[in-house]
């Protein structure tokens, strides 16, 4: 135990040194551009779920409260909306060919819907060949990347990777993995892991899964072959995590994590070194109120879904 403590203290010190002492050290900066809008002004939404269509560089925002899905062009203007038939939609993803995937859930099951480019449902995709470990699987998050769909049961920390026809390709039991990796006495382990759930989830350009676990004040990156890395420290200062929310990576490998408690979006490089953060609680347009889901388009614009019906704010990120 003493040996573990010594290791932990040592690495704690290193991590503390890695956190910039001030905002000025950051070379990456974010600038507020605009909120997603239509001709009547900013479109309100509450913790919308976001997805980017990379082919057309359009952003989709699913407003769970209103059961509507709105499509915005690369200038942030609404160009189309649909989704009234999806009463309990929990997430949305866009395929390479413009197909729209909508995930809905009920008490008993989740359903994956395929829609055409107009949002008209064309079929339900049945999940096939799920292993026994996934017998109670009920997805509530959805990501399309590298030609496959990632379905996530955030409460059980299960990830099922399926083809576009629903055939199971591989799975990940992140709950078991996290429990294997946790140290400490019985009470400590119970407190840390008895009731964890995943919040943010995304897949980067290399196929690594990114996810956050709010109750651990941490974010994680897991490669397709199972290598898991975690980062983050609890705290209220720059670079530290309060309640972690959404997570996404850009083309340069930078990782963005929203912090619902601190009301910021933190930017880390691909080695998990803190670069900068933006937003902050407040009522200015550039401020954020309980930021949650994140998305990034081909132009490097970062989309941030918020609470308080503040809709989705768009930021541009530059590095010097």
């Amino acid at each position: 135990m003493l040996k573990h403590s010594a290791k932990i203290l040592s690495v704690s010190s290193i991590l503390l040194m890695m956190v910039p002492a001030s905002f000025a050290l950051a070379e990456t900066t974010a600038s507020f551009r605009y909120p997603l809008s239509n001709f009547t002004g900013p479109v309100p939404s509450q913790w919308a779920k976001l997805a980017v269509d990379p082919e057309r560089n359009e952003i989709y925002a699913l407003n769970q409260y209103q059961n509507d899905i709105r499509i915005f062009d690369e200038h942030g203007m609404e160009i189309y909306s649909f989704g009234e038939e999806f009463v309990s939609a929990t997430d949305i993803a866009i395929g390479d060919d413009g197909d729209v995937y909508v995930l809905t859930k009920s008490h008993a099951a989740s359903t994956l819907h395929l829609c055409d480019y107009r949002g008209e449902p064309t079929s339900e995709i049945e999940l096939k060949n799920l292993p026994a470990e996934f017998s109670s699987f009920r997805a509530d998050r959805l990501v399309y990347a590298q030609g496959v769909l990632y379905l996530v049961d955030s409460g059980r920390l299960l990830v099922a990777v399926v083809d576009s026809d629903g055939s199971f390709k591989r799975g990940h039991d992140l709950d078991a993995t996290l429990k294997q990796l946790t140290v400490g006495d019985k009470r400590t382990k119970e407190k840390r892991l008895a009731d964890i759930s995943m919040h943010g989830f995304d897949v980067d350009k290399n196929g690594n899964m990114l996810f956050t676990v709010p109750t651990l004040f941490s974010a994680f990156r897991m490669s397709a072959d199972g290598e898991l890395e975690g980062f983050g420290r609890a705290g209220s200062g720059p670079g530290k995590f309060g309640v972690t929310g959404g997570i996404v990576a850009d083309a340069e490998g930078r990782i963005y994590v929203s912090d619902r408690l601190r009301c910021v979006v933190l930017i880390f490089d691909e080695n998990f070194e803190f670069q900068s953060e933006f937003g902050f609680r407040g009522d200015r347009p550039s401020n954020l109120i309980v930021p949650d889901d994140l998305a990034i388009d081909n132009n490097g614009n970062v989309y941030v879904a918020q609470a308080a019906n503040r809709g989705v704010s768009v930021f541009s990120v530059t590095s010097k």
């Binding site: 573990h4 290791k7 932990i8 690495v11 704690s12 991590l15 996290l178 990796l181 946790t182 140290v183 400490g184 407190k191 840390r192 892991l193 008895a194 009731d195 964890i196 709010p214 109750t215 651990l216 004040f217 941490s218 994680f220 898991l228 890395e229 975690g230 980062f231 983050g232 420290r233 609890a234 309640v243």
Partner: peptide
């Protein structure tokens, strides 16, 4: 991850 879970604390 091992060390993170060791030092990161938890909200539970």
């Amino acid at each position: 991850a091992f060390l993170t879970l060791g030092i990161g604390g938890a909200a539970w």
